[in-house]
């Protein structure tokens, strides 16, 4: 889902040695001074952008936008028109307003991303927690299923499903949702394992709590934190995957999506004559994916710090 490879235990022999001799007091500093617990300005900029895009997409029908499907052909000039006062992002070859198409496109692209990762969170989270909590055969079977899904290119499975079924918003979302089960599930499993042996879980077990109760009351809240960070990263992946499908001609059939818009402008002639057709949606898509990635990444390291402090 990202380059989420665990960075090995930080061998700070030298650093620790230096630190210890450099100032014994450094070692014993109070927590709030050594570990800076802030999300940083970048995180808030990212969140702001995501909020703006989500709000614009949600409110698109009520915003004073031009009709995304109308052709605004100006007399005496052939489209596409470059960005100007009336068409902020310019228009495409059919003289459709790119600004409003980008915002309407966000509706579909973000819905796909959101439904997909929600699917992954619910089913992947559940399977991962079962595997991590019960271990044994449950774990072996579920982990194997995860490996199967992870071991061949996700996009192949996606095109397999989307090519054979009708290409509705629902099919695409669910397809990408199925694909996000395995990656999310693996993280859920790993996190569950790391918590399943902690004192508070053992304590609950010795007090006779049922498995269901332990999983919901004790494990779920702890698993949710890293999963929340993962959700943002996963949503970015799903939004990108939709674009990939669009490039293969397999995205949602009706309406505009970012992927389809980029494809519209990606031909060599269009790139040469009217690069804005491709670059307007590319920039918006890029900023959105970057924000999701960045916010997710910050959140992840932010909570990792807390985990080690536990």
């Amino acid at each position: 889902m990202s380059d989420g490879v665990g960075v090995g235990p930080v061998g700070v022999e030298m650093a620790a040695g230096m630190e210890a001799s450099a100032g014994g007091a450094v070692v014993g500093l109070s927590q709030d001074e050594t570990t800076k617990r802030t999300l940083g300005i970048g995180f808030w900029i990212s969140i702001t952008w995501i909020t703006v895009i989500v709000l614009a997409a949600a409110l698109a029908p009520w915003l004073p936008l031009k009709d995304p499907d109308s052709n605004f052909i100006a007399a005496g000039e052939r489209p596409p028109y470059s960005p100007n006062g009336t068409h902020w992002f310019g228009t495409d070859q059919d003289a459709r307003d790119l600004f409003s198409r980008t915002i309407w496109g966000a509706r579909i692209s973000l819905t796909v991303g959101f439904v997909a990762i929600a699917c992954g969170m619910v089913f992947g989270g559940l399977l991962g927690m079962i595997a991590g909590y019960f271990r044994g055969w449950w774990d072996r079977v579920i982990s194997f299923v995860f490996v199967v899904f992870l071991s061949f290119p996700a996009l192949v499975l996606a095109i397999l499903i989307t090519a054979l079924l009708e290409r509705s918003l629902r099919t695409i979302s669910i397809t990408l949702g199925i694909l996000s089960i395995a990656p999310v599930g693996r993280v859920a499993r790993a996190t569950t394992i790391s918590f399943a042996d902690r004192e508070f879980v053992l304590a609950a077990r010795t007090l006779g709590a049922s498995h269901r109760r332990i999983m919901i009351k004790e494990l779920l809240p702890n698993v949710l934190i890293p999963m929340g960070a993962l959700a943002l990263l996963g949503m970015a992946v799903a939004v990108v995957a939709e674009g990939g499908l669009a490039f293969l001609g397999l995205s949602v059939e009706k309406g505009s999506t970012w992927g389809k818009m980029i494809l519209t402008g990606a031909g060599s002639r269009d790139l040469q004559k009217a690069p804005w057709i491709a670059f307007a949606p590319i920039i918006v898509l890029f900023l959105t994916v970057l924000s999701l990635n960045f916010a997710g990444d910050r959140l992840r390291s932010y909570f990792d710090v807390r985990e080690t402090a536990l």
Partner: peptide
């Protein structure tokens, strides 16, 4: 590196095509 990782491959493809070929 962050920019490269966040840029989807189809968008990067279009960008590279635009810069290096057009």
């Amino acid at each position: 590196t962050f920019l490269f990782i966040a840029l989807p491959n189809f968008a990067l493809a279009v960008l590279i095509k635009y810069v290096l070929s057009i």
